[in-house]
């Protein structure tokens, strides 16, 4: 007979989800708020089937983390995932979801792809987004997310 999980299991599992990095765990929980089926922020951002509205939501949530994060690590990783959300929209949908200058966006993408500690899949998305932007393949910036 298969046991049904006891009511506290989901809360105990938060400890296992938290892993070694509190900041990474935070991004995973934010991603889960946006897409409950997601397993991590990186998985959500590198998935080419993630819809554009979810990437908009990621951009907003990670921007909030960049500005309001509790720790310096939170704010730093918030900035990386904020840029990665914009990159994902460009790479997967060829749509620009930021009104920042090309120069600012390209710098953000470059900092991701040269970061040897970053997830390789995320670095590839940043590179593809950079290329999309440089080649003028992206649709113009969309109105702010409602």
């Amino acid at each position: 007979m298969t046991e049904i999980p006891h009511p506290g299991a989901e809360l105990l599992e938060l400890i296992l989800e938290s892993g070694a990095s509190p900041a990474i765990a935070l991004t995973g929980w934010i991603a889960k708020e946006i897409e409950p089926a997601s397993t991590s922020a990186v998985d959500l951002l590198v998935d080419p089937t993630t819809p554009l509205d979810r990437l908009h939501a990621c951009k907003d949530a990670f921007k909030h983390l960049t500005l309001e994060g509790e720790t310096a690590d939170d704010r730093t990783i918030g900035a990386v995932y904020y840029a990665a959300s914009i990159a994902a929209a460009l790479a997967h949908h060829q749509v620009r979801i930021s009104r920042q200058s090309d120069h600012a966006i390209e710098n953000a993408f470059r900092s991701i792809w040269i970061d040897e500690h970053a997830d390789l899949r995320l670095r590839n998305v940043a590179w593809k987004a950079f290329f999309t932007l440089r080649m003028g393949l992206a649709a113009p910036a969309t109105p702010p997310h409602p």
Partner: peptide
Amino acid sequence: SPAQVANIVARMKRGFT
């Protein structure tokens, strides 16, 4: 914004953890 709610949930999960 929904971003605020998402951040609060994540932050509280961390505190609870």
